[in-house]
Design a protein around this nucleic acid. Sequence first.
DNA 1: TCCTTAAATGAATACGTAACCATTTTTAAG
DNA 2: CTTAAAAATGGTTACGTATTCATTTAAGGA
Lengths: 332, 332
Amino acid sequence: MVSSKDVAKRAGVSQTTVSRVLNTPELVKKPTLDKVMKVINELNYIPNAHARSLVQNKTNTIALLSGPLDNPFFVDTTSAIINYANEMGYRVNVQYVNDQKLIEAYAAAFENRVDGIILSCILIDDPIFDKLKQMDIPFITYNRKHKNNENFVEIDNFEAGYLSAKHIIELGHKTIAWVGGPLTVSTFNNRYFGFLQAMKDYKVPVSEQYIFNTDTSKQDITRAFQRLMKLEHRPTAICTGADSLALNLIDDAIRENIIVPDDLSIIGIDNVDLSQHGLIQLTTVGSILEQNLGHLAIRELINMIENKKNSCIKITESVKVFNRRTTGKMNM
Amino acid sequence: MVSSKDVAKRAGVSQTTVSRVLNTPELVKKPTLDKVMKVINELNYIPNAHARSLVQNKTNTIALLSGPLDNPFFVDTTSAIINYANEMGYRVNVQYVNDQKLIEAYAAAFENRVDGIILSCILIDDPIFDKLKQMDIPFITYNRKHKNNENFVEIDNFEAGYLSAKHIIELGHKTIAWVGGPLTVSTFNNRYFGFLQAMKDYKVPVSEQYIFNTDTSKQDITRAFQRLMKLEHRPTAICTGADSLALNLIDDAIRENIIVPDDLSIIGIDNVDLSQHGLIQLTTVGSILEQNLGHLAIRELINMIENKKNSCIKITESVKVFNRRTTGKMNM
DNA sequence: TCCTTAAATGAATACGTAACCATTTTTAAG
DNA sequence: CTTAAAAATGGTTACGTATTCATTTAAGGA
């Protein structure tokens, strides 16, 4: 591989001048600049970003630790994050992390001396959080947050769960199920308790048989669905912890010839892009803003990186119901 | 940031020994190893991957230049590529490239001295191809291919277009439209000519009014749809160049209260994961294999990187029709 | 005990760049 | 012309690691 020294030798200048040609061309005389540029093109010289990183202590790289893309929420956010970061001149190292591989993912980010880390996969009570803080690398969590209540961008999850239940209750449903995710995760936790609060406020009875906090795997969701459908009094509506769960449940329902929303109302949370598709039209609760959480978070992260201020980001977006086609009034 | 020299000093050994502790621990005596490991943990030392890259001329990084995630095809492939690469110990720099930003994307990959490049976004007649070959970096294209016919993994696109048309013709349709993409792209090109061949073989007339090779933007697809619906003899079926196009057209149809498939049959190509969802059940043509093209391609790429053999990958997977719910017999 | 060989460690160097400081060349002012 | 200042360029070093080669230490055989 040709280096700046090779260019320098061939052009009859010093390596320093080659460096200047690319970084501060205004400091080099026109004829010299032309001469060097000519050689650069002749030799097809491409500067080595790693060598630069070493001396500048800056990599222009951001690590993204995201949930898996079979969840459409992460499709929306991954897309927004990468596009914005690229626009701002950053490359993005993406990893789709499951909970086992989390440690390795962090290690990789640290070894690569990324300028910042944007992550969704963190538990309320996650020991990694302190390690992150101690590493002194700018980072931000989107969607989920840590109990320390620092550096996050989220929607108002409690309110989302609350509004979701309220919407269903106001449609006249009496037998309402909850299918959510692990309570060790802030989103599912707060959404679940929001749901419970609404049920309490509107005096709708909650029985344990109707509550499933799954591990968010397809199998576990299907298992929850089948258990619900085997109950003596089937629920007429399901509030879910996320659109991805709702979409899985709808798929299950269709497979069992259960009509949504006639036989069963289903409501999600997140308002993922996909939910608007004509074939889907999922009723859901989501941010009142156009831009998704990934976009908000990456903007804040890059701002942190470039301004070096240790301001602690705490953003909680308001939510509203997007009333579409998967919920309806209860049938007698 | 603490370096291996810091560790060495504190542990009372040479930097070389610290390096050995991490890379070839079998060459260092037990007491020394323990002593050094203790200091590594105390100081929270993390080796610098960039410095290592510099001396080893290996980055363990792969660049992925993908199409945008609003196309579900790229959701499936991005996911497969990143997961497999991570499993094999590579990090992945992802860029979602539009045709303008392509040059910058390549530049970024080159500057970072990635070990390999996996890309979808290449035109049949793309000058970048020669540059890629000349750079001597292992690379592979998935989905699309270059006219040079080297290093690609694709489905049999001509056959896919052919089977798509055949399926529709055999359902009795006489007025059949085509909505595809730019013919400068191998996939759309071959699929289109496969479509035409079937129309010819089965003696179904083809009129220009029914042919739209869009730029694959939502607006352009919608424009094509509206033009088709304004024709005196509306098509009763649309063959599309990709599932993403089909899904957009179905969305348009629903918005105009046109029932799929009763009023209009629509068939895609790619068999994206999403097409199987109960709410969608898109009839489509896709690979007979389980694994998607991204998975096949990244396997080949990593193989190329690690075995350094210059074998030229040419893989074309067979296809079949996945008959689901968006196509039906022609109504009288 | 001595000698040979193997095991363990260290010193020096290269990787490719940007930054710092020193030097040379050019320009402008007097 | 001279001289001071500014502009242009070059020499040297640091960044943090792995590698190569040299050196020291330990082990084993006679």
